[in-house]
Design a protein around this nucleic acid. Structure first.
Lengths: 127, 127
DNA sequence: GTCTGTGCAAACGCTTTGCAGCCCT
DNA sequence: AGGGCTGCAAAGCGTTTGCACAGAC
């Protein structure tokens, strides 16, 4: 795993702000000219394999990437359907459900959970 | 909303078995020759608008459609990562979380939640 | 007869692949 | 010096659009 300019810049962008970003957003952040879109895809794939990045596949078609911090707890997001801003929730209350499924014979369980709605800022602006 | 052969066949397929189906599965079920793929997309879009069908956008890239029964409770699914079979869970324990978000100012909340794992059948076959 | 639904072909956007050249180690 | 990384071009795939014709009401 070589240390290149593109990889350094991308990792930097992912670390400085927390919040899952789209590939497009990341591309803009590190400067469109400093890196090809194809390289973005490939680098993010490499980062995923290296467990540096987690892929958040929102159910609305958009795919986002966030810096994977092994220390922080498993969490989910709220996506504003108007401004597309994403906030993080600090906990996850699904352990009881996974427990039930494990009892039923399921193995290697994971889950994807995302919330959608109008965020406070958009809600007050709209009304 | 006209009653055509394609629409009748598609609605039939969706109703006779419960479980979200991919567009491909539905196309196969009603017979590949009896309907163009494009019409499948268009008809499913119409059904969604008419609230006859609910779209389940799994986080793994696959999109599925299920017959929308207004009487049945809001529920989620478990997807087997090996055989791709989908089972339905009967309840949803996320109301407390949505409540908290509403208190924080979020509006019009919805969520997408899907579980992934190895189903009991695949688990016993594999070991 | 009118207006909606359908099939076919083509466009579309996002993502992946192939290949030649560059740069990190 | 070598092999991984990158850019560019092109292919791939699921989905959408345009248009002419057929079918429902």
């Amino acid at each position: 795993l070589k240390a290149t300019d593109v990889r350094r810049a991308l990792l930097e962008s992912l670390r400085e702000e927390h919040g899952p970003f789209t590939l497009e957003e990341l591309h803009r952040k590190i400067g469109r000219e400093s890196c090809d879109l194809v390289t973005m895809y490939r680098t993010l794939a490499v980062f995923q394999r290296a467990r540096l990045v987690r892929r958040c596949d929102f159910g609305d078609g958009s795919v986002r990437y966030e810096f994977f911090d092994p220390g922080s707890a498993h969490h989910h997001h709220v996506v504003c359907v108007q401004c597309r801003q994403v906030a993080s929730l600090d906990d996850c209350a699904l352990d009881p459900i996974e427990e039930k499924l494990r009892d039923a014979g399921y193995r290697e369980l994971t889950h994807s959970l995302e919330f959608f709605g109008v965020c406070p800022r958009c809600a007050s602006a709209g009304s």
